[in-house]
């Protein structure tokens, strides 16, 4: 077989395969639900009800989507420039650590300036954490996939050390847990009484800002050029190395905001189970969004709904909630294939 580029793909050609990919992931999940003894219709009904069936469920989905928007954006901006950042998990924790270091009483400032300083410092920490693998890539040609993955393990052990040592809550009854943030360092709720914090708005604004960067700035153009063909970009006079490093700073900073938002908005303190793999799920979110910043918001809501819904479904029907992870992993694989098939046609020879 051979792949042949399609000159002018029509709307059906461009959107058909991605739609089939999403449908395919539902099919895979249905088959597996059947194997586990669950009726697929009941399973997806329970997932839908669990994700959006009540005000509480809907707010839970929006809360779960918040960190996924940040990590999804982090991955999307990096992948677009072909910087394979698989380390959003570690960068998320870097942001969370900074939030706890500055927000538990080190600075006694009014809320707004305090939150701005914490947010910016958190971004800086995440950015610097990704700068190391990015420099290893540009200076030594070390594959950043492996280094960012290994950094996830290293940084989580570092957080474990912090939570048992310097950052340990003296009132925490010996649990590896940080002290609670002071009230000024908490992201307030958007509407009193509704369990949704300003981190969600910050996530939406970040998506918008990244969209503007991508479409309206030189950096956005350069990042895409480097991603499409680094050699050609270099030939055209684009400073490829500097673009990669800038992309890394942006990506790491965005992922760190996920940690900031989770600690300051939702949890109020840091534990080792702050993230159930939001950094890795960000990859799925970004790919489902075809790396588009605004698409990331939609994809994150979709993915969050599946996760929140699957938890409720599992409690009600006893089908393991890992069904959600399988569905999203298969959606990721089918989506990359779909993107290809929307631009190329398979020819037999």
């Amino acid at each position: 077989m051979r792949l042949e580029p399609i000159a002018n793909p029509g709307i059906l050609r461009r959107l058909g395969p991605p739609a089939l990919a999403i449908a395919g992931s539902f099919l895979v999940a249905s088959l597996l639900a059947l194997i586990a003894g669950g009726n697929p219709f009941a399973v997806f009904g329970a997932i839908l009800k669990g994700a959006a069936g009540s005000k509480f469920a809907l707010l839970e989905t929006l809360n779960r989507a918040t960190p996924l928007i940040f990590t999804g954006l982090a991955v999307a901006v990096a992948f677009r420039a072909r910087l394979w950042n698989i380390g959003a998990e570690a960068q998320l924790y870097a942001g969370a650590v900074v939030t706890v270091m500055l927000g538990t009483g080190a600075l006694h400032w009014p809320s707004l300036p305090l939150l701005v300083v914490i947010g910016v410092t958190a971004m800086l920490a995440g950015a610097l954490l990704l700068l190391i693998p990015a420099l290893l890539k540009t200076r030594f040609g070390v594959d950043e996939v492996v280094t960012t993955l290994l950094f996830n393990f290293i940084f989580l052990l570092f957080v474990s050390y912090l939570l048992e040592g310097p950052l340990k809550d003296p009132m925490g009854m010996g649990w590896p847990k940080s002290a609670r943030l002071i009230p000024e360092a908490r992201l307030p709720r958007i509407i009193d009484g509704l369990r949704l914090h300003w981190g969600f708005v910050l996530a939406l604004v970040s998506a918008l800002v990244l969209w503007v960067i991508n479409t309206r700035t030189t950096l956005g153009f350069e990042m895409r050029a480097v991603g499409q063909n680094a050699e050609a970009a270099r030939f055209a006079g684009i400073p490829v190395t500097r673009v990669i490093l800038k992309t890394a700073l942006l990506s790491g900073g965005l992922a760190a905001l996920a940690g900031f938002s989770e600690v300051a908005g939702l949890k109020g303190s840091l534990t080792l189970d702050l993230s159930p793999g939001y950094g890795y799920t960000g990859i799925v979110v970004a790919m489902l969004a075809l790396l588009h910043p605004l698409g990331v918001v939609v994809a994150a809501l979709f993915v969050a709904a599946i996760f929140v819904g699957a938890d409720a479904m599992s409690r009600a029907l006893g089908v393991p909630s890992y069904l959600a992870d399988i569905m999203l992993a298969s959606a990721l694989l089918m989506m990359v294939l779909a993107i290809l098939l929307s631009k190329f046609r398979v020819v037999r020879d």
Partner: peptide, 21 residues
């Protein structure tokens, strides 16, 4: 000829979640 990075991560996520399931 899909991106070996993305396919690999996808296979890892799929194999892990299928196993746990």
């Amino acid at each position: 000829g899909l991106s070996q990075h993305v396919v690999g991560i996808g296979v890892t996520l799929l194999a892990t979640s299928l196993t746990f399931y």
